[in-house]
Computed example of a mutant assay.
Amino acid sequence: MTNIIHKIAQNVELSFEIPEADKEIAEEAKMYFESVSKYLKIATQHLGVIYDPFVEHSDVPVESVIRHRGLLTRLSNKIEENFEKVQVNAVKALQKLHHFSVGDSDIQELINSFEESVDSVTDDVSTLLSLLRYNYRSSEFRSRVINLVDRIRSNSKELTDFIYDRIIDHIDSNLLAKDWMDEAKDKLELNDLSNQGGPLITRLFEERQKALHPDRFPAAEKPSQSLNVSDAPKMHYPDFVRKMPGPLGG
């Protein structure tokens, strides 16, 4: 029965064989999308430096804000630095995913939706940076900061959910072919190891001991079988790269 299942699994695997070069590109794309999510989390958490005090104190005099404008400048520089890391990884992720977009409407749809989501976050970040650097004298400074941070965090969460629920799921299921067949193969391999005489590490130790001390292990009537261990298209830069201030943007 096990041999039959092995044969079926091998036939199915050969029918849907994915070139190793494509798998490597897909793995790199997945890594960069995960990095986008990681740096989004870091960037949005850092926004609490200005968000939390403004939420806790409703009466913030404009004069106090003006006195601390140097702090606002340093804060805005750090915010820009944080979201530039998001941008860099977003561009790299798109470059990798574009490799699979020719003739695949599903991937092109994922790319378009991802670009729109990053654009939305980037637009709000640019507005926040401008507010912190040039419009801190406004009487609505506090309320605008709170509203912008709320929107950035909300859109960033939606982007992160989209990355994992749609993009990475698509990469795993369609580009890396990680599905029920992988799980079945893993179980089959484990069963084979157990049928060959116990855990692999134990059998390797026994073989080593036999080689070192053959006199301690009488020859068996039938020799045991030894373990055979050996057994993309043209890329364009999305709008969010040009919109963001700094070396990546315009």
Rank of each mutant, 00 (worst) to 15 (best):
E81D: 10
S143N: 14
N77Y: 12
Q108P: 14
S154C: 04
S37L: 02
S76C: 14
D119T: 05
F114D: 00
D150W: 01
D231L: 01
Y32K: 08
K96P: 01
I25N: 00
K78S: 13
G103K: 11
L97Q: 03
Q196F: 15
L131A: 01
D104I: 09
H213I: 06
S230I: 10
K243I: 11
A21Q: 06
V149Y: 04
E34P: 03
V88Y: 12
N228E: 08
A43N: 01
D165T: 12
Y134A: 10
K41C: 09
L193Y: 07
D119C: 04
E221V: 11
S58I: 06
Y134V: 02
N135P: 06
L129Q: 02
D215P: 11
V60N: 05
D186T: 10
A177K: 08
A211E: 13
D186H: 07
V62M: 04
H68G: 06
S113M: 05
S139A: 10
I163L: 02
P245H: 13
L193H: 15
Y39V: 11
Y134C: 03
S224K: 09
E206D: 10
L248G: 05
R208T: 11
K38D: 08
E183S: 11
Q108I: 03
I107M: 05
I42E: 11
K210T: 10
V49E: 03
K92L: 15
Q225G: 06
P214N: 08
G249N: 07
A184M: 04
I50G: 07
E115V: 13
K234H: 15
D186F: 12
D59R: 08
L248K: 08
K234E: 13
N11A: 09
A93R: 07
V125W: 14
V241Y: 01
A220T: 10
K243A: 09
G197E: 05
L47M: 05
N195L: 12
S139F: 14
S224R: 04
K41Y: 14
L193D: 10
H236V: 12
K210L: 08
V118L: 04
I146H: 05
S224E: 10
E27P: 01
V145N: 07
F16R: 08
K157I: 04
V118Y: 04
Q108S: 14
D192K: 13
T44P: 02
I8E: 12
V241L: 03
M1E: 13
G249L: 02
P233D: 09
G48T: 00
L110S: 02
E20C: 01
Y237I: 11
F100Y: 09
E28I: 03
I79K: 02
S226Y: 06
S154H: 07
N77K: 11
K234L: 15
Q87D: 15
A184V: 13
A184L: 06
E140Q: 11
Y136L: 00
I5A: 06
R137E: 09
H213V: 08
S37P: 09
E81P: 09
I163G: 02
Y51E: 00
E183D: 13
L129A: 02
L14C: 05
E183A: 13
D192M: 09
D150G: 08
R69I: 00
K78I: 05
V12T: 04
E28C: 04
E140P: 07
N3Q: 11
F217R: 05
E189P: 02
K222N: 12
D161V: 04
E207N: 15
P53R: 05
E34A: 06
D182P: 03
M1D: 10
Q45M: 07
